[in-house]
Design a protein around this nucleic acid. Structure first.
Lengths: 222, 222
DNA sequence: GTCTATAATGAGATAGAC
DNA sequence: GTCTATCTCATTATAGAC
C-alpha cells in the first residue's frame, strides 16, 4: 500500500514470490469471493507458507484492497488517456458516434488488457464484487468513481440537454453489461445452445451495439 | 427441501420461527454473501439459538439453496403467466413493441414484487450471486434457466431471422441491467450527484428504454 | 524473506435434556 | 421445536528461529 518506512530494495526472488502470492490471491478472491477464499488456500495455490501471505499482504482486508488497487491505477490511466485523445473530436461527431467513442474509450482498454491475460479477466470479477458489495463502497469511491465522473463530465458537455441522471443511468447499465459479459459469457452460450463459447469479436460487437443504442434511447426520451 | 418423512403439521409458532429464520438468512446472505454470513449471525438476527437454524435449514449450502428456491418458483410462475398472456399478440406487434412486451413480462413481475417488499429486494442480490458464482451453477440451471429458455423460445419465434446468440446475448445484458438497477441504484444517484434517490418510475422507464433499444440494435445488426 | 509452530478465535454441526 | 452445551475443525494472525 503505502511505503512509509523506507527500506532497501527487495530482492528479485522476493518480488517474484510477492507477485505469485498476489496473482494467486487475485484468482481465488475472484473465484470464491473475499470470504470464500482463505489465506491458507491462497498460500497453497502460490506454493508458500501461510505466514508469508500475511507478511506480503498484511491483514486480509488490506490485502484485498491492495489487489484491487494494483490494477485499478494503470487501467484508469489507459482509460483517461483514451478519453483525452477522443475528446476534441466529440463536438463534430453525430450523437451515436460520439456515444460509441466514449464507450470505446472506457471499455476497450479493459477488453484489450483482458484479452490475453488471465489476471485481468480475474480482475473483472473482483470489480464486480467491489461494485456490488456495500462493504467495499469506500474502495469503489476511491478507485472507480473518479474515472466514471470524468467520463460523465465529458458526456455532459457533449449532451448538455440530457438530464444528468439519464447519463449516469446509462453508464451504470453499460458497466453492468460489460461485467455481465465478462463474468457470465458461459451463460450466453448455454442459453443460446450454441455449443462451445462464441466468437469473441461477435460478443464484443454485440456489447457495443446494445450499449450504444440503449444510451441513445436514454438521451432522447427524457 | 423434500419432505420425505411424513410428519404431522408444524405448529403455528414453529412456522413463524421458521420464517423469521429464513428471512434473516435471506437478508444476511444477500448483504454479505454465502461465506460472509455465518449461521451464528443469522441466528442472532432472528433471535434464536444457532442450533435452531441448523434444525430448520439443514446444512448451510442446502439452506442457501432452499432460500433461493423459496421465491424462485412463485416468480417463475408469474413470469410465465405474463408470457402466456402476451404471446398471442406478438405476431401483430411491430418489433419494438414486441420486444418491450416480452421484457415487460419478464421484468415487471419481479419489480412489482420488489416494490413493497424488502425480502424481494434482498432476493435480487441473491440472484446476482447465484448467477455469477460458478459454485451455484446447478442452482441457476434448475431454477432460472428453464424460464429464460421459454422467453428465448418466444423471442425466437417472433424473430426467426435473428441469430439465437444475439437473442441470448440481449437477454443476458438485459438481466445484467436489471440486477444492476436493483443492486446499485445508490450508485446511479451518487454518480449523477442528484442528491437523494431518484424517482422510482424514472429509473424503471429508463431501464426499459435502454434494454429495448439495445435489444433491437442486436436484432438488426447481425 | 522465509520457515515452523502455535496462539486465539470463530466457524458449522450435533447430542441430548426439556 | 427449542434450548444448553459441546465437539471438531478451519480460520486469521503472530512469535521467533534461521
Amino acid at each position: 500500500m503505502d511505503e512509509t518506512k523506507r527500506k532497501r530494495a527487495p530482492s528479485k526472488r522476493s518480488l517474484q514470490t510477492r507477485q505469485r502470492i498476489f496473482d494467486s490471491a487475485e484468482r481465488l478472491f475472484a473465484e470464491r469471493g473475499f470470504d470464500g477464499a482463505s489465506i491458507r488456500d491462497i498460500a497453497a495455490e502460490a506454493g508458500v507458507q501461510t505466514a508469508l501471505v500475511n507478511h506480503h499482504g498484511g491483514a486480509k482486508a488490506d490485502f484485498f484492497a491492495a489487489i484491487v488497487a494494483r490494477r485499478a491505477e494503470p487501467l484508469a490511466q489507459k482509460r483517461l488517456a483514451e478519453l483525452t485523445r477522443i475528446r476534441p473530436d466529440l463536438p463534430d461527431l453525430p450523437p451515436r458516434d460520439a456515444v460509441l467513442a466514449v464507450l470505446n474509450a472506457f471499455i476497450d482498454p479493459f477488453l484489450d488488457l483482458a484479452r490475453g491475460d488471465e489476471g485481468w479477466r480475474n480482475y473483472a470479477r473482483l470489480v464486480a464484487q467491489v461494485s456490488s458489495d456495500q462493504r467495499w463502497a469506500a474502495l469503489a469511491a476511491q478507485y472507480f468513481d473518479p474515472t466514471a465522473q470524468q467520463f460523465l463530465a465529458v458526456l455532459t458537455r457533449r449532451f448538455p440537454a440530457a438530464p444528468p441522471e439519464a447519463l449516469a443511468q446509462g453508464f451504470v447499465f453499460t458497466i453492468s453489461a460489460v461485467l455481465g459479459l465478462v463474468t457470465s459469457r458461459w451463460r450466453i452460450s448455454a442459453l443460446a445452445d450454441t455449443g462451445p463459447t462464441q466468437e469473441d469479436q461477435a460478443l464484443t460487437d454485440g456489447l457495443y451495439d446494445f450499449a450504444t443504442a440503449g444510451f441513445i434511447a436514454l438521451l432522447e426520451q427524457k
